[in-house]
């Protein structure tokens, strides 16, 4: 037999070691410092526009100094800071709503998308419906949602769910359709049944698209949530923003906005980490 036998077939690191290595490499590169510089630059421009030059466009807006003083104050002027219970209540309620709606959208959207990709007849029934419903803006659903559901809570979650659901279905379907025909043929040739092809080819093969879709749908969920809370909420970050506007508590608006940004990024990151965990083959491909 004429073959070189690889005794050391490359990288066989544990995922923990891999993460640590990547972290070290990242800290050694200019990226993190440039990232930080970019953020600081933005705050500097904001500070200059509002608190130094007081430009006409910005003269009603709170500057970074006013915002952060309020945010870090144990005894905040408008009742919202790191030290107040209310701040965490709003965060908790919004996050819990997004979590429920996102989970529901994923639990329904992924199987429906997979099934649409697997069975052409099912796609023929459902695809036009999806394409008509999907472009309807979430705000257009607000009246129906309020009419349909008893109480505000259910209608806010329903709106959040809708935003998330369509993106998940569509990306999952695209994921199935992105799978190379050769894998289906190979699986059939190796004796896999229709059902086995579903679990061993369609599900893992569409996973990269599914997770891209989940990140997008998470973004839509937060978007729809804030719209819902502004219109119908009693609590939550969207409600807080709108309420602070009507009560002329402008620094709170900025606090809630930055909070939304940070939580949105964190929820995306969590999805990516779960995706990496499930798709080791993708992670190692990139390494």
């Amino acid at each position: 037999m004429s073959s070189e036998t690889p005794d050391n077939p490359g990288i066989q690191l544990s995922s923990g070691a891999r993460t640590w290595m990547r972290m070290k490499h990242w800290l050694g590169s200019p990226s993190p410092y440039l990232n930080l510089l970019g953020l600081c630059g933005f705050v500097a421009v904001w500070y200059a526009a509002t608190e130094i030059f007081n430009l006409p466009l910005f003269n009603k807006l709170p500057g970074p100094k006013a915002t952060f003083t309020e945010w870090l104050s144990p005894d905040p002027l408008y009742g919202i800071s790191f030290y107040t219970k209310e701040y965490y209540q709003h965060i908790g309620i919004s996050t819990w709503r997004v979590f429920q709606a996102f989970m529901l959208a994923t639990a329904l959207g992924v199987p429906i998308g997979l099934f649409m990709g697997w069975k052409k007849t099912f796609k023929d029934y459902t695809f036009p419906l999806l394409e008509v419903l999907r472009p309807i803006p979430m705000l257009a659903w607000v009246p129906l949602s309020i009419l349909m559901w008893p109480g505000r809570e259910a209608s806010i979650i329903f709106l959040t769910f809708l935003g998330s659901f369509f993106a998940t279905v569509l990306n999952t379907l695209l994921g199935v359709e992105s799978i190379d025909e050769a894998y289906f043929r190979a699986a059939a040739s190796l004796g896999a049944s229709d059902k086995q092809i579903f679990y061993k080819v369609i599900v893992p093969g569409s996973l990269p698209f599914v997770f891209t879709g989940l990140q997008i749908s998470m973004g839509y969920a937060w978007f729809s949530l804030v719209a819902g809370e502004m219109l119908a909420g009693e609590f939550g970050l969207g409600y807080l923003i709108w309420n602070s506007y009507t009560l002329v508590q402008y620094p709170v608006i900025i606090i809630a906005m930055i909070t939304l940004g940070v939580i949105g990024s964190l929820s995306s990151l969590i999805i990516r980490l779960v995706g990496d965990k499930l798709m080791q083959w993708k992670v190692r491909e990139a390494a």
Partner: peptide, 10 residues
């Protein structure tokens, strides 16, 4: 197959 069809996820 021409372009190979090992399942990349296995």
């Amino acid at each position: 197959f021409q372009n190979g069809a090992l399942f990349p996820w296995f």
